[in-house]
Amino acid sequence: MTPAAPRRHRRLGEPTLPVTVILYALVFLGLAVTLLPYLWMLSSSFKPNVEIFSGTAQLIPSQPILDNYVNAVTRQPVGRAILNSIIVAGVETFAVVVTSVFTAYPFARLRFPGREVIFMLILGTMMIPSQVTMIPTFILMKWFGWIDTYQGLIVPRVMAPLGIFLMRQFLLTLPKELEEAARIDGCGRLRTLLYVLVPLTGPAVATLAIFTFTASWNEFFWPLIVVQSNEMWTIQLLIAQLKAAEATDWGMVMAIVSLSVLPTVAIYVMLQRYFVKGIAMSGLKG
């Protein structure tokens, strides 16, 4: 996929002026629909409640204030929730990257009996919706005493079939000669993997890490089940209960939501090329 290449106008030849105008009009309509909720969220977060409930929808606050953010940080456990999310998403991302590389390696490089069967089994787990395994996993957490702990949040998420698949696909594209040279020099398999292959996996690791971090930051169902106390809330859990608790204070709610959205949007905007690559790679499974 080369989305960056300048493209010819394929369907229409050189478009006439009215066609161009219509195309731009449609694009701007789409952009407006996409962006309005974000603008509405941000603008509400900078408005005093008097203005929010004044009955006139102004996208630009007449006099922007920071009170909502101050209230958010002082009245709600926002700092703790963000810290929890960073810990969970951070550890999970690191773990998924490491386990994906190590698990992908034998599938990409070694010949051994059972290879195809195990690979299909691991990929096959993707066909089981997580809601089906959720109840017994919750029961497991009870047995382990992991309810309401970081282990409970993280451990059931430290491996991902899609990550193993992406890594295997990537390792397959690397030339085998690299490792053979190292092996002839007397390097063991583990050392070859660590010192020859791993340094080359940069782009795939970046893609996988970004995807995992975003997904983990946004995850809701599992934290909802395994977390019980306010101290263990992730940012998504905090937001989810705000609606009920603070239904009247939309300014503060939108301030917290804005804070929660910021990291993933920032990561996406800065590291977009990896997202494009990731979509192309996961498209391979079709």
Binding site: N218, V253, V265
Partner: peptide, 11 residues
């Protein structure tokens, strides 16, 4: 890339 929870509340 925006979480469903955040989107839900905003909507």
């Amino acid at each position: 890339v925006t979480s469903l929870v955040a989107i839900g509340i905003v909507w």
